[in-house]
Design a protein around this nucleic acid. Structure first.
Lengths: 208, 208
DNA sequence: GACCAACTTGCGTGAAGCGCATACTTGCGT
DNA sequence: ACGCAAGTATGCGCTTCACGCAAGTTGGTC
């Protein structure tokens, strides 16, 4: 049997509902603006009762930010699948790009609209950062396993996870800056460059 | 006249109210637990009407997280006061330690109780991260000014600011981990060490 | 000292968040 | 196959929030 994601119908249904709710929340919020969307609407769009919404998420913002959480946790999963002999930072880069780099299933403009929404509404910003932090945590655990270090004792894995989270945030911010260069850079390229700089210790450009 | 913080009685009163509200929010939440504190209570403790509370903060969590924001923005201010010829990462370390390093005006145990509160309640975590991010932004601007780079074009300042934010978060987490070493490390030492590692590019310890 | 802008306050409203009790599904043992 | 126990979904009701609006009040300026 498959251990990966399906331990019974129960679990699968739960995941499906969770996904349906967060997708509905995101879609509606992008369409109408966050505070023209009621929890009631989201629940209706996902085919569950309003009360059930709160069994899954404790706020609209959390539901929307879950989309990001999902992606970002994918980085940690991808990292665990990297060959063990690959250098850490190469593995991290590949893992990150596998989830945030290449042309996605979601059309780029829709994805960007979502990111723009999340970075504009203050309550969404907070939840976005929380999701990002949880992703960093997941990456930290994967790093700890990979380099064989106890994350409760040695902060190294958390620093790496956090650093990656920063790269992601900065790359995304640059990606959708109001005044893009021509041609606009791809998120993947921005992300790769950010990781490279961090892995180089962010040397003062003045001192070069 | 003093340009620093006082541009008229009005402004000073506003700052005082803001501080009073956030301090009251923190104190009450630590004492009773977050959801045993009503906005009404906080407002009363600060001597303003409940309605006024929401003129300053849009939630209890934001009011509490403002304490952290205040400190973290101090780092950026401290950075701007560092001598120009100091190497960037030295200046950053000194600036950070000036606000988070040494024995504080606040007794350590109280400060730690506050941090513990903020990291335990989910809604506070989100607001804490938002505050931290705003601090990173402020640091980024200071870095941009220092190294003479346009932060809208070059992501370097944001990466540095973000990296510092990560150091802070990780150091704080380690500082109040449930299973502290004996003797417990000081926040300053943990922070310094984290910054050193990041400035060294977080090399894989396995490959050493 | 008089005017204007900024700030505070009270009131009212719509919605959120969640505890609790109840009905329904799913998984498992027999 | 059957039925029981655990896990979920739902409905209801209550408290608290967040904020728009329209006075009243205070600080700054000429």
């Amino acid at each position: 049997m498959d251990v990966s994601s399906a331990r019974g119908l129960r679990e699968r249904k739960k995941q499906a509902t969770r996904q349906a709710l967060s997708w509905a929340a995101l879609r509606l919020a992008v369409q109408r603006g966050l505070d023209n969307v009621l929890v009631e609407d989201i629940a209706a769009a996902a085919g569950v009762s309003p009360r059930t919404f709160n069994n899954y998420f404790s706020s609209k913002a959390e539901a929307i930010a879950f989309r990001h959480l999902d992606r970002v946790e994918g980085i940690a999963a991808a990292l665990r699948e990297q060959p063990a002999q690959t250098p850490l930072w190469t593995a991290l880069t590949d893992a990150a790009l596998s989830r945030f780099g290449d042309a996605d299933s979601v059309p780029d403009s829709a994805w960007m609209a979502g990111v723009r929404l999340v970075t504009s509404e203050p309550s969404l910003v907070a939840e976005f950062l929380k999701a990002n932090a949880r992703g960093e945590q997941a990456v930290a655990m994967a790093v700890a396993a990979r380099v064989g270090v106890d994350p409760r004792v040695d902060p190294y894995p958390h620093l790496v996870g956090g650093a990656l989270g920063v790269c992601l945030r900065v790359a995304m911010a640059q990606w959708m800056q109001p005044d893009p260069p021509d041609p606009p850079a791809s998120l993947g390229a921005l992300l790769r460059s950010a990781i490279e700089q961090v892995a180089a210790g962010l040397p003062d450009p003045t001192a070069r």
